[in-house]
Design a protein around this nucleic acid. Sequence first.
DNA 1: GAATTGTAGATTGTCGACAATTTACTTGAC
DNA 2: GTCAAGTAAATTGTCGACAATCTACAATTC
Lengths: 234, 234
Amino acid sequence: MTETQPSSGFQQLDREGLVQRVAKLLSKAIVSGKLAPGARLSESVVARELGVSRAPVREAARLLESSGLVTSEPNRGFFVRQISAKALDDLYELRLAIEIAVIQRLVQNWNEETEAALSAQVEALHRVATLDADIFIQVEADMQFHRLMCTGSGNPKFLTVFEQIAIETEFSIMLIGQLYDDPTQIAETHEPILEALRAQDTAMAIDAIRYHICEAQRIVTKQFRILEEGKTSI
Amino acid sequence: MTETQPSSGFQQLDREGLVQRVAKLLSKAIVSGKLAPGARLSESVVARELGVSRAPVREAARLLESSGLVTSEPNRGFFVRQISAKALDDLYELRLAIEIAVIQRLVQNWNEETEAALSAQVEALHRVATLDADIFIQVEADMQFHRLMCTGSGNPKFLTVFEQIAIETEFSIMLIGQLYDDPTQIAETHEPILEALRAQDTAMAIDAIRYHICEAQRIVTKQFRILEEGKTSI
DNA sequence: GAATTGTAGATTGTCGACAATTTACTTGAC
DNA sequence: GTCAAGTAAATTGTCGACAATCTACAATTC
């Protein structure tokens, strides 16, 4: 069916369109906090800075629009999405619903490959914690664990939705600038999940994921509320 | 904070951008089956037909890209998304996860307004069933019930995700051309959900929604598999 | 005849230009 | 000083044009 070339050692070179590259760059700029939420993103400025015309910038922005990173107002342009503490809270609730379903499927589809991937990621989490790495690296590693769970579930739809959630979550955590007081906590809260999965214990795994997510929800929304108050009082 | 105009009875006239209108039109054309899945959607053809230039068409297509209705390949353009029976099955699994969470919140946030809206929608379902209306009308009414549940949950994120699921689901059902053998079944399967919600019985409501969704899943994916076989054998 | 190479036509990708709209500023009246 | 109206600059919306790329078919080779 699929044509399997004689494999002459050549690697497929990325034929990514300009629009996709611009979208990725914009996405990174927003998530990393270089572009403040609510900020207008001027087409001409972005276009000039990247050395392209406005058309691909506009298309990239549209791409990001339905994925929720930017909003558009007719004749006013694109803006970096504002996130409220309530929205963030809602986001975690959605995430919990998804991940519970992921866990259920994950236990059914449990295999060595998935176990190896998740184990390796927990180790990676420990590494970044001890290295006292950048917050961005830490959050990225955290998200990667959950991404791997979605992948292992065997239902690609879960990954699609999670990816959107992840972008918004990372975005918010970047704004706060920290997650746990002690970075090693990130790695530790993932271990019970992995253990429960290894034991094929669905109920325990769900409890573990619920604890993990609700804990993050509690911390993040609390920090975010503080951040919001600071903003409005000024 | 928000400026509350003296409300002189004027309705806000839609200041929708051209891009949004094109996106809506395209979306409708795809969901209603006017554009077959896998079909290339030619920018110039769409642009000429709508009497606009290619730029807004491209932007609209990008908008639809991340919402999953179309895919893009560099230098090859946009294509109407192909849906497989497996993907449809996965979609229903995602939907179940979301709607269970929605039910849980819905019971907590239960109020007269939501009850009235949902009751009215069940009646609407009965009406369209007896009218023996178009399949599109029926499915739209069905989806509207679930949309109202999402709205009533108080978590807008649920609605956002459901909207995406709904588009893909409608799209698939349009392809099949029918749902239940007897159209009145649509209305009937929604009643137990509403009843359980009225009784504030979370467990029963979850059972009802699970039955409803799994039943639809069973029927739709079965029909879809038949459709797929027909396609591949030709 | 099958596979490869070459070529013409069509389609997408990107751009710069101009019209429409918003924004920021200035002016004037009360 | 405050509010309103008017004006100019900046920004977005849309378009048509040209370059880059793909597609389909003809020509060539084995």
